[in-house]
Structures are given as C-alpha cells and as structure tokens.
Design a protein around this nucleic acid. Sequence first.
RNA 1: GCUUGGGUGGCGGAAUAGGUAGACGCACAGGACUUAAAAUCCUGUAUCCUUCGGGGUGUGCGGGUUCGAUUCCCGCCCUAAGCACCA
Length: 902
Amino acid sequence: MDEKYFAKKIEDKWQTKWRESGAFEVEVNNDKPKFYQLEMLPYPSGNLHMGHVRNYSVGDAIAWYKRLKGFNVLHPIGWDSFGQPAEDAAIKRGVNPRDWTEENINHMRGQLQRLGLGYDWRREMAAHRPEYYKFDQWFFLKMYEMGLAYKKKTQVNWCENDKAVLSNEQASGGLCWRCGNAVTKKDLEQWFLKTTAYADQLLDDMTEIEAGWAEKVLKRQRDWIGRSEGAFVDFITNYWSKPIRVFTTRIDTIYGANAIVVAAEHPIIEAKYETFSAELRVAIEKIKAEKLKVTDHEAEVEKEGVDTGLKAINPFSQEELPVWVGNYVMIEYGTGAVMSVPAHDERDFEFAKKYNLPIRQVISEPHLAHEHHTMQVLALEQAFSDYGVLVHSDYWNGKTSEQAKKEMTHHAETHGFGEGATTYRLRDWGISRQRFWGAPIPIVYCETCGIVAEKYENLPIELPEQIVLDEGIEGTSPLAKDENFVNTVCPNCGEAAKRETDTMDTFVDSCWYYFRYLDNKNSEMPFAPEKAAYWMPVDQYIGGDDHAVMHLIYTRFWTKTMCDMGLVKFNEPVKRLLTQGMVIGETFFDVIPNEDDPESGGKRVYYPPSSVTVERDAKGKIITAKSADGKPLKSAIERMSKSKGNGVDPDEMVEIYGADAARIFILFAAPVENELVWNEAGIEGAVRFLQRVWRFVFKWKAKLSEPSAVADGLNAAILDADGNPPATAGGSDSRKLRQKTHQTIKRIEENLESLQFNTPVAALMELSNALYDFKVEPETASESDVFAIREAVESLILMLTPFAPHTAEELYSQIVGNDRGILANEARFPEFRAELARADEIEIPVQINGKLRSRVLASPDATNEDLEKLALADAKIIEHTDGKQIVKIIVVPKRLVNIVVK
RNA sequence: GCUUGGGUGGCGGAAUAGGUAGACGCACAGGACUUAAAAUCCUGUAUCCUUCGGGGUGUGCGGGUUCGAUUCCCGCCCUAAGCACCA
C-alpha cells in the first residue's frame, strides 16, 4: 500500500480488475432479488458533459448500494446513436455518419470507463446498428398489423433551419426543440402511431407509478394528454348538408350561446368558400395566414373573427345563431368548432365584447338564482365560469350545472343531435422524418398492390453504406435519391416497387432500448419475453426532466403496445423515476442579428469564459462582461455544453483529481433534483476527504489486519461469539466511536433509500472526522479500541463504495488481504444495530419561554419527571427563573424542556 | 395570465409527524510543523453588543395559531421551470 493516495494508479488497477473479472456482468438468477438500475442513454455527440457525469454517478451509486444489499443488479448502458448531429456533420464535413458515430461511441465509452462506472458492457446497444433498428422495423410492422401505424396527409410542423419534421411535442410552443427556430407548417404524407388509442391507459395507469414518480412529471403528462370530458352537440344549418358539430364541456350553458365559432380551416368554410364575398374571403385568409406565424410567447393574441353570414340552429332553444370564423378556435382540437357562450367562458366573453355580440347569463350563483327571472341582458364585468344553477334555460331552469350536464347530454343523445364525448389534447405520434440517419420505415409502394408492409424475413431494411448527403430536396429524405435503396420488389406480388424513404423519429429508438439490454444478441426477437419477465420493470430510472412528456410518454405507450403484443405482462415500464437537475454554467455571447428575419432576435455567438473579462457585484452577479478585444457581451446561465463554451471536460477532471473525487464532488455539491451551477472550487475538498480516509487506513492497516481476539473478518466484526454485539465493551471513547459508526450506517441507508446523495457523503465525512478525533495510536490501542476502529473503518470503506468505488476497493483489499474485490468477497453493506447507535447520554436543551438558556445531560431512559428535575436543578436555569413564577413546564420526551415563567 | 417548485451565513447546502437553526464542504483568518513553501494537523468563522459570564437579533416581507414556527395558516414580494387561446 502506498503511503499516498494515487488516484490514477488505483483507478487503472480496479478498472482492469473489474473488466477482467466481469464484476458487473449479471444473468437471470432466481435465487436473488433483482434490481434494474437504468439511466437515460447518451447521444454520442463526441464528448460526455458534466450532466452525464452527474446522471451516471447517481446511477452507479444506486447500483453499488443495491449490490451490497444482496441484489442481482442489472446496470447497462448504450447509445442513442441515430439523429441529426451525425447527419449535420456528414453534410458539413463530408464524413460518413456511421464512422462519425462509431468514433464518438468509442471515445465516449472510454470516458465512461475512465469514470469507473460499473456497467455490464456485454449488453451495450446502439440504435444505429442494423441489429438494433431491425427491431424498430419489427415493431413498426407489428403495429401496422394491429392498426396502430397508419399514413395520412397532414400539415406537419416543419423546421426550416433543420429541414426536419417535428412532432407536436418537439414543436411545443411554436419553436423547434432542437434549434429554437420558428416552426412552420407544411403538407406532407406522414406515418403515424396511434398514441391516442392508449390515451386513457396512459392517464389511468398513472396510479400504478404515482408512488415512484415526481408529481410534476405526472402532471405534465396529464396536461399533455389533456383528457376533457364533455359532449358533442350538432347545430343544423340550412346552408350545408351536414350539421356543425361542436365540442363543449359545458352543455349546461347552451342557452347562453350567441354564436357558433369555427376555425378558418373548418370543412364548412371550405364547402361554402365559393359563395363568400371577396371581402369575407380576405378576412378568412388573413386569419389563416396569421395562424401560420410564430406566436410570440409573451404577448396575448388579439381575438379576431368575421361573421360568415351562415346560420345554425341551437337544437335546445331552436334559436338561430350566426356562424363566425374565429382565430381562437383551433382546427386540431375537438371538432374545430365551438358554441360561443360569452357569459360563461372568458375567451367567448372577450370575443363578444369586441364584436358586440349579445351576452346572456344562463348560470347563476345558487343564492342569486331567483333574481334572474327576466330575460334581460346582464352587465357582467367578466365571464362567470364556475358551476351554478341554470337560469333562462326553459325546462332546465333551477337545475345545477352538474345535473344539467348529465341530463342535457342524455337529452341530446335521445333526440339524435349529440352525445357524450371525451376529447384529448394528445395527438397521434407522427414518426416520419425526411432524414437519412434513422431507421427506414419498412413499407413498399407497389403500383398494383398499393401500400405493402415488408416481410419480417426481409428485415432489417438497411441504410445504404454510402450516400451523398447535401441539403436535400425539400420534404424528402436523402434516401429518395439512392436508386439502389428506393427500387425494390413488392413483397406481395414480386413486381418492381419503391420503398418508403422516410425514416423513423429517433424517439422510437429510445422507446424500448432498455428492453434490448436484456437480450441484445437476440436476432429473432427484440428480446425474449422470459428475460423481461425476470428483469422488468425498471426499478430505478434516472434522467433529465426535459424528457417528461416526450420520451417518457412514448416509452409508456410502447410498453402498452408490447403488452398487447403479448411480449410483456405489465403496464408500466418504470417503477421509480428520478429526474435530475441540469448542470449549468455561465455563458457569454454576442448577438448577431439575422438579416433575413430581423425580428427573430438573431444568432448567438458564444465566447469561452476563459477569454471573457467579467465584472461582478458584491453578490457575485455579473455586471458587465467583455471579450478579449473589448466587445461588450451578454451573459446567461445555461445548460453546459461544448458549443456554448461553458462545458467542463470530464476527462480533464479525472486526469487532475481522479474519477472518485470527481464523482464524490458532483454528488456532494447539491441534491440531484436541483440545478447545479457548475463551480469547480469545491472539488479539492473531495480529494482531501479521500486522502484523509486513505491516510487513516494506511496508518492502521497493520494493526487492523492482525488477528483479533474479539472478531475476525468483516461482517463478523460486529458480533461477538454468541452473535451479540459487545455493546458495552470498551472504554467510553471507543463506545462513542461505535455509536457514531452505527448512526452513520442508519443515516446513509435512509438517505440512499430516499435518493439523497449529498447528505450521505457528508455523513461519511463525519465518520472519517470521528476517526481522527479518536486519539489513540495503533501501538498503544487496547483491544476494544482496535475493535471499534476496525468496525468504523470497515463500515466506512464499504459505505464509500457507491460514491468512490476504486478507492473503496483498494482500501478493502488492504484490509482483507486479498485482491478479489468487494463483490467477489461477497461483502455486504454494514448492518445497523440500534442498540449500538443509542447514546449513553443525551443532551437536552432547556428553554425558558421558548428561548434556549441551557443544556443538561440525561440518560436516554430518563422519564419526563427526571428531565424536569434536571432542568430545574441547572444553575443557569435557577438564575433565570429566580424570583419569577413558573407557570408551566413542557417536556418533550427525550428531546426538550421548556419552562414558562411570568 | 395559469400551474408547480424554490427563497436559510461570503458560497454550495444541512435540519421540517412544530422542539438546540446553520451539519458537511468550500472560502477566509490565526496557530503548529518547515530554513522556506506546499502538503498535513489544530483553532476560529450568521450578525450586533459585551464587564468575555453572557445578552439582543436572525431562515424573502407583513400578519396569525402555539409554551415554542425555517417547518402550519392567511396576505404579499422575488425567482426558476412548465403550460398558454384545449372550448
């Protein structure tokens, strides 16, 4: 054992040993409880960033902890290796996207290994390899058979910058999720997966995972699915063959309708367009055009509308209502038409005010209902959107909203002009991408047979090895230009046919990658169901909460389809989800205005922080920042990345401080859910801590490895010959050390179970400090001193394993005298014993009128009366109570005494 | 605008079935060791007053409940994230 701690040396040693012994390789084993620890897989961009280090350090800590608790722990990793950056690199630099990706994977795998993360590398998967995407295609065919995959022409979200189609989720807020560019609309034939078929299950099954998922994630998913229960009501119009169907959640307000408002894209508008005046057409076109523009997030859009002159009949009141086109009605939601009830809906209210439409109150607050007996227009200051009692509604007057909703829906149903209905905000998932670097959609277009699914035995439909990638023909994949790829034969009739050239959204890959880890060599099936039956569901999943509605909804959907395919027998793939906060850092940039579109805010050009001169106020906030050539720069705190120049290279940190120190530091710095503003200043403390532990073990190694009369071996050390702990043996100092040891065991166990990682590191530091406070030298130590130290040191080392595995392994090997490793020696997390953690003496604060005045020492068995007596006998307390009347004494058992005086 | 988190020393952060606020670390200061430095070890560090025994104040702000509130309740302010015409 070296006297000094050489991180590099021990890290190399143990990384080699782990690899050679297959320390983290696991198989199905029914004799052990299983634990599936999963972290979100990285995109192989070329370099790990600190966010990865954080994510994977947490995952590895849990994996180690569970191993030490006797679980059969599956801890795999892979690569989300399809996607745009590879294609961009290919276009920009002429590299082959496959080579670029493979190189990046190799480099990043090395980075992960240098961090000493304990993965079962045999199970690695990469999305871009045909062995994997074969099954993307396999699943697509299954879903096609099940009617879950279909094609339709649709207006898609289109990002002009990326030349890419975006899903609703990816275009959320009208901005491209990747580049932030404004999203426009484009008509394209697209493949969809029927996520809406599982909308109810996606919502209802949340009860199964509530316990393990953060409420904020579930809430976002709930909002995203947006189930809304109400009714369809048909308004007959003499001007059109079909009635206008509206969706409403407030059928009880129907007597208050003053108009029907439809979206500009509504079929009735198309049908009657010819008959409209030029003026009306212009107004409608203007509304349409405005909608295609990016909506500024900050500003509320002014409501616009135009009366079409068409009329529709309210089926309840028989009243004739005007049909308007309104910019606030969305064609995508519900039926694209609403009944406007200004008195009871804020938007309709605003609209009616603007265009002077009548506002009629038909719902009243219950205690005011009797005042609404005449049909007069009430001067409402604002819409009343609460439930209440119906007024001015004929037969329905006096009913509550709840009653009326039920009965009026039923009435509509029995009379054939409506029905109860549930609508969703959730759309089907458009998976077509006009891109090269993704899994080809296994569909063939045949002149005679039409759309034909590929045969399973023809999978995988492979991407060509070489392809010319350039900006591409707008709206088609670069694959369309590859004759060899496009031309094929029809799987049905054998005639010449053409392939689908769109590829799948890369979120398809991440839907099921963690199932592939279970059985990644399987060439027949995505995975063997019996392996999934053992390992799944995932016990702990860790990743960023930016995936709350995309990846995590898609993968839940995917699991439900797999359940229907008979591949798995459960509804929910992930029992417990931990969302980690971003690692962020200061960025400095200059804004270069975009000449084509001066309003878009321009492009940011980033400057590395090392080249920026910064002036700060007393609180450390940046006042001014200047580049090296004196240009004033703007600053922000943003997610760390290489392109923004605020990234820290994990390799550099590992090189300087060691992987263990880097890992301890990132876990210790802040709770995982918090954002972590990167500040390297604390990492020295992590190194110092490891060195302190090292030096202590070095000093005591010889003494601790001597055979002991009290106990031998690691776990036995806690027990005496009868299996009982020698709780009272030894002097009071050694007794105190044992107390600290066991208190620490409890704390760390509780912390890790509740997914806290900063506090257990603090607890380990305390235990290490307690060892230094124990002023005994190896040469003069008594048997019971050695015993207490051995117990503390062994516990410390084992509890250190999840955080600093290399250091722990090396120190452990020094103590047990073999190099086989912690796992091969079947070491276990130290066992907590309450009787040892219990203090002999407890300190009881004594308050007077709620203010701390003194402390007394008492036995942990002291009764309330004992504590009261002790408190009153205390000199300081006597001083404070002297001459005053004691009104009351409150004793909190074993915690506190409060004396109330006058 | 709506929803949900969060405001604690110079800094990251501990501690809430209501019960010693500031664990642990960083930074800083003083001391020991050293020819010197680094490393290491020890001591101190919320703030104000102090006769050095202590005392006052303090967990974003203002109220309330309580013997006692960082924790519970009411009303504000600030901040981060998500959503934003969803009928």
